[in-house]
Nucleic acid binder design. Structure first.
Lengths: 228, 228
DNA sequence: TGAAAAGCTGATCACAGAATCAGAAATTCT
DNA sequence: AGAATTTCTGATTCTGTGATCAGCTTTTCA
């Protein structure tokens, strides 16, 4: 039940507090199990309220889902803010930073990656909603960065939209297929060490490629950490 | 309702025919919607039989799921066979071929990638089953190839298991996040042209990296097609 | 050809989960 | 304090879904 820092200073009333708690729990469950496997009773239980309370605050299950998703808006805004600080850097640097940020943020807020993967695969109305309200702007901005990086001759001239989704899909896939990693190789990526190794692998793998440059020596790239 | 070529020569009886049809439809629906969103009634409807028939042939929903999944065994066997033909080639070549095969096969049998993604993300009993009965051997074989390729100094020395899952996740993610691609950029990867471009992007992107080598000229790699 | 087995169905049951509602309890407002 | 409003609940309804079963039809086979 660790709650995120809601930046509001207003001392929210009782109703708003339980509503917020419900939203958090709902976000967690929705992202973990997917829409269908989540039950109103389950959320109510975890939140320590009656099922009817959920309906009182949010109407129906769909509306609760949307309310919960808006909790991710903060997360994305956080990424935007950190990225905006580097807006004068070369496009390729910003791109790399964006991917690193996404991985780090996905680590801090696992719901983000899981939701993108789950709904991105399912398609349908919920994906459309997510895109309109949460992801669309970010994706368009990334595509613009890719275009600039290609113009700068820093990226190979693949179709920019596909590059964005490739980067995104790679990251999302890797974040979410952890169970596969665990089941197959007994590796636990849920440790600080494992996580860092994973990040490096993803970033270097995607950007610089897995192949050596022929000499057997891994060329060290600019992987400097984003300052916090 | 285009049915795949069941290689059996025995002129299967009526019961086996409908059972096979049910399995096919079930595989399609399970991979598309995930276990929970699939209903027995839906499958029965699509197969043109009564719901009770499903239970007659397969017992319960879980058993039907497993029966349907075994349909993928052929697909994986097909990959194995094509790959075995190149077992004397360098490990890195085999790896690249394996990835290309996986992409091509996933195109021909979309259920494979979707299932791996869906269940790989969900974890749980069904993933364990899949791993034991379908994917485990393949993954271990890929890991061995990666190890050899690293020993040959062809791949950077990342942890082999993570490399496998990275490759797999990248491919799976890209195959399955098509709706995301479509929603965001209006690109339709479901065309021969789009598909090929996609394959190249994934393979070159993952293996050689998205970055140019500094000269702005894309180094052409051995992307020769597997003969059929 | 006739009996046995296999294939299949409509009807029905049991149950989980979403949604509703009247009213109790708590909070806010004047 | 007392009214009004908000917050919350237990009980209930309703719908969708998995599963069962008795019996009809078709196929198999001796």
């Amino acid at each position: 039940m660790a709650l995120s820092s809601t930046a509001t200073v207003v001392p929210l009333g009782k109703g708003e507090r339980t509503a917020a708690r419900i939203r958090e729990i709902a976000l967690d469950q929705f992202s973990r199990l997917g829409f269908e496997r989540v039950t109103m009773a389950g959320i109510a239980d975890a939140a320590g309220v009656s099922q009817a309370t959920l309906h009182h605050h949010f109407g129906d299950k769909d509306q609760l889902w949307r309310a919960a998703m808006l909790g991710l808006a903060n997360v994305i805004a956080e990424e935007e803010r950190l990225l905006a600080a580097a807006q004068d850097a070369p496009a390729i640097t910003q791109l790399r930073m964006a991917m690193r940020l996404f991985l780090q943020i996905s680590w801090k807020h696992p719901a983000l990656g899981r939701i993108v993967a789950l709904e991105g695969m399912a398609g349908g109305e919920r994906l459309a909603w997510l895109n309109e309200h949460l992801l669309g702007g970010r994706n368009r901005r990334l595509a613009a960065l890719v275009r600039r990086a290609i113009a700068d001759r820093e990226l190979k001239p693949f179709p920019p939209e596909q590059v964005v989704v490739t980067l995104q899909a790679g990251a999302v896939g890797i974040i979410n297929l952890r169970p596969l990693l665990q089941v197959n190789f007994g590796v636990d990526p849920d440790t600080p060490r494992g996580r860092t190794a994973h990040e490096e692998l993803v970033l270097d793998g995607l950007f610089a490629g897995l192949l050596t440059d022929g000499t057997g020596v891994k060329k060290k790239l600019g992987t400097r950490r984003t300052r916090r």
